[in-house]
Each structure stands twice: as structure tokens, then as C-alpha cells.
């Protein structure tokens, strides 16, 4: 019974990992082996030139940089908007606070896809399509971030913030010098989910940009595949490996935190 279930688990894992394995294997196979009728799991020699081709055939480095700019920009703005608002919701009393929190909860109901058409219209009106702005701005209001940080701040003792007020800190200083550093666990969890969601997103880059110079990694490899060079399976797979690696590496490094984050709240970005 035991060995059998272990075997089943190992087999299942092999099936799950198969696309990863095949992607890496193809990315290292010379072209003639890819198109041969024989089934070879491993390349006969490591064709690293596929990776070189991927970086020269399409601006893969540019795609990666765009991904960093877009994800970084989105994350920074989300935090800058969400953290002070979450602090006010959790630790201050003002008229309309309950209403505002109600808006945040209602906002959680709205998937991004629903807002795409009007935001596209608005950006077109402002002549902002095909810019980094178009890729970043639609996501700066993260209700999920506000909600997550608010829950975290609400659990902190009020005396801590009162001590800071007596110590002469302005409310803005309290937000960034006391509340935010203490919310580090929430901030990392939020960062993981925000970056994962936007690094992997294809929907919005497909809509908001048509300029390959602005392509994020997923948009970039779709360009690659659709271009004539797309029949070049080896380099295409090499590009896929390159695009996937940063997040996989990040996940393997921060594994515990990611899975704990999911388990404790059913988090979603």
C-alpha cells in the first residue's frame, strides 16, 4: 500500500513536470533533433545556441526589462496608494470610513477584465495607449492590497501609533516609518501575488499595446511565436525557459511564505 501510493505520487509529479522537462529539453536540442521522427527525451548535445538565437532573434532582454518596469511600477504605485489608505481605515476615525471600507470590499468583486473596455476607451482618449503608463496605471488601485494591509494594521495595537504621535511623528511619518515596516509580512505576500499576476498577464498587454518594444514577457513570446521565426522551436522554447525562470526561482526561494500565504487567506492578486 505505502510503496504503491508513493509510486503514484511520483508518477503524478512526473506528469506535472513533463511540460517543464520538455520545454527545457527542446530548448537545448539542435533543430534537426527536434524535427526528427524519433522520440528522444534528451538532446544528444546541448545546443546553447538556441538561447543565443532567442536573445538576438527577438528583443528578449527588452521583454524582460519591460516586465521588470511594468511589475515594479505597478507594485510601487499599488503600495503607495494602498498603505496610507489601509492605515486610515484601520487606525483612524473619520466620517465615511465604513462606506470606504464597503467600497473596498465591493471592489474585491470586480475582476480586472470587467473594467478593460472603459479603461481602454479612457486611455485611447488620453492618447496613452502603447505606453508604459497604459500598462501600469490601470492596476494602481489594488483593493486587494488595501484590504490585506488594513487587516494587518487593524491587528496592531493602537498604543503603538499613539506613542508615535506623542513622539512627534506626523501621520504620514507614522505610515511609512512605523506601520509599513511592521507590515513587512503582508507586504511580501502582497508583492509575490502582485508580481506573479502581472508578470504572467497576457490579457491587458494584448489590449493596451501593439508595439513590440513595450511587450511584457508573455506578450513578447507570443510575438516571437507569431513571427516567422516562430517555427524555430528551439529558440522559442529557450525564450519560454528564460521568461519562466525568474518566477520559478523566486517561488523556490520563498516557497514557505508563498504556500503559507495561500493557505491562510486563499489569497489572490
Amino acid at each position: 500500500m505505502r510503496p504503491l501510493s508513493l509510486l503514484a505520487l511520483l508518477l503524478g509529479a512526473a506528469v506535472v513536470l513533463l511540460p517543464f522537462f520538455w520545454m527545457v529539453s527542446l530548448s537545448l536540442k539542435p533543430a534537426d533533433e527536434i524535427f526528427s521522427a524519433r522520440v528522444d527525451l534528451l538532446p544528444s548535445r546541448l545546443a546553447w545556441e538556441n538561447y543565443a538565437t532567442a536573445f538576438t532573434e527577438v528583443p528578449l532582454a527588452r521583454f524582460l526589462m519591460n516586465g521588470v518596469i511594468v511589475c515594479g511600477g505597478i507594485l510601487v504605485f499599488q503600495v503607495v496608494f494602498a498603505v496610507p489608505c489601509a492605515y486610515a481605515l484601520a487606525q483612524r476615525r473619520f466620517p465615511g470610513r465604513t462606506l470606504l471600507f464597503g467600497l473596498v470590499l465591493a471592489g474585491l468583486l470586480v475582476p480586472f477584465h470587467v473594467t478593460a473596455i472603459p479603461i481602454f476607451l479612457g486611455l485611447a482618449e488620453l492618447r496613452l495607449l502603447n505606453t508604459y503608463t497604459a500598462l501600469i496605471v490601470p492596476f494602481v488601485a489594488s483593493v486587494f492590497g488595501i484590504f490585506l494591509f488594513r487587516q494587518f494594521f487593524a491587528a496592531m495595537p493602537a498604543e503603538l501609533f499613539e506613542a508615535a504621535r506623542v513622539d512627534g511623528l506626523s501621520e504620514t511619518a507614522i505610515v511609512w516609518r512605523i506601520a509599513f515596516p511592521l507590515a513587512w509580512p503582508a507586504a511580501t505576500a502582497f508583492a509575490v501575488f502582485s508580481v506573479t499576476a502581472h508578470w504572467n498577464d497576457l490579457f491587458w498587454p494584448l489590449i493596451a499595446t501593439s508595439d513590440p518594444a513595450l511587450a511584457t514577457p508573455p506578450r513578447g513570446i507570443v510575438y516571437f511565436r507569431d513571427a516567422e521565426a516562430g517555427d524555430d522551436v528551439g529558440p522559442l522554447m529557450a525564450a519560454s525557459v528564460v521568461v519562466t525562470t525568474p518566477l520559478i526561482a523566486g517561488f523556490l526561494l520563498a516557497q514557505r511564505r508563498v504556500t503559507q500565504g495561500i493557505a491562510t487567506g486563499g489569497l489572490k492578486a
Partner: peptide
């Protein structure tokens, strides 16, 4: 406001800033 008055307060829970060292806690005000 509290930050505009020159008063000092010691709280029941001490309300030390957990992310700062003792020296930084004392130096902050």
C-alpha cells in the same frame, strides 16, 4: 495634536517600536 504638544508619555503596554533597536526607539522622538 499630540505631536504638536511637547509632552512625553509612557504607555501601559510600553508601545515600543518592534522593528527598531533600543537605541533607535529612544532616538526617534
Amino acid at each position: 495634536t499630540a505631536s504638536e504638544r511637547n509632552v512625553a508619555m509612557v504607555f501601559q503596554s510600553y508601545a515600543l517600536y518592534p522593528h527598531l533597536t533600543v537605541a533607535e526607539n529612544i532616538a526617534l522622538p
